[in-house]
């Protein structure tokens, strides 16, 4: 099998790892897009958070209380952040949908999860990169967003999901003991996030970001603000 040339993506990846600065990596469909010029309304889909405690043996125990609180904190932080960028904020909870437009919403959500899986695979895993997609970001969710524009007036849809884990007392003890007595590194909690912005008028994914790090904390409001800010790195809105 012939080996392809090194893609720009890999070079960028290599560069940021060497600089130890790649907690996030984002893509833009159009580098000139700037939402702060038009201040469009943005529909925020319910934040999908899962917070878990990492046990000594490496099991993840989902914590419902942390998860519920984190969804609140992140929602609040996101609202603040977007308002700071000059955007208008539309919540899906307050929007009114009849049955037909509700079906469009679920179709859009299903398309989003399917296309996100394709993006994660083909834009973030270098061995799965698609040559025809090199140097461009070209992903679509279909026409279902138009029903949402009609119902809410929002022009863009924002999807956020975060998986966050924290070392529990047992794990902390193991990490400390292993590092002190054996000099061995045992990993602690991780934060993995994904955010994407979709143009509801044509279904194009205009911005996509992925966050992955051994830091961040969604259990506090200050931590959530930091996480949201990091997760929105490269968001196509430049405040004047």
């Amino acid at each position: 099998m012939p080996c392809p040339r090194m893609s720009r993506f890999v070079l960028a990846m290599l560069g940021c790892i060497l600089l130890a600065a790649c907690e996030t990596q984002h893509f833009l469909a159009d580098p000139n897009l700037d939402l702060s010029r038009t201040n469009p309304a943005i529909l925020v889909f319910p934040i999908d958070a899962t917070l878990a405690e990492l046990t000594a043996g490496g099991s993840l125990e989902i914590n419902a209380l942390w998860t519920q609180q984190a969804e609140g904190f992140a929602d609040e932080a996101l609202r603040k952040h977007l308002l700071g960028l000059g955007g208008k904020f539309v919540e899906i909870k307050s929007a009114h949908f009849d049955e037909a437009s509700l079906a469009k919403v679920s179709h859009l959500v299903l398309m989003h999860s399917t296309v996100s899986a394709a993006i994660s695979r083909h834009k973030y895993e270098w061995s799965e990169a698609l040559p025809t997609h090199e140097g461009r970001f070209d992903w679509w969710l279909g026409q279902s967003g138009q029903a949402i524009i009609e119902r809410t007036g929002a022009r863009y849809g924002l999807f956020i999901s975060v998986r966050d884990s924290y070392a529990g007392p047992g794990r902390v003890m193991l990490i400390v003991s292993a590092s002190l007595l054996l000099g061995v590194y045992v990993p602690g909690g991780r934060q993995e996030g994904q955010a994407s912005l979709v143009d509801l008028s044509d279904g194009r994914v205009v911005w996509f970001n992925r966050l992955s790090r051994e830091a961040g904390d969604l259990r506090t409001s200050a931590g959530a603000e930091e996480t949201v800010k990091t997760l929105l790195t490269g968001f196509p809105a430049r405040k004047p």
Binding site: P2, P4, M6, V10, I17, L19, A20, S127, L130, P131
Partner: peptide, 25 residues
């Protein structure tokens, strides 16, 4: 330390680069 990890990741990535991607043009 962060630097150590970055170095290791870069090394791992270089090993990967020696391999092949799945899709051809």
């Amino acid at each position: 330390s962060g630097g150590w990890k970055a170095g290791l990741s870069a090394a791992v990535l270089l090993v990967f680069l020696a391999g092949c991607t799945r899709y051809q043009l």
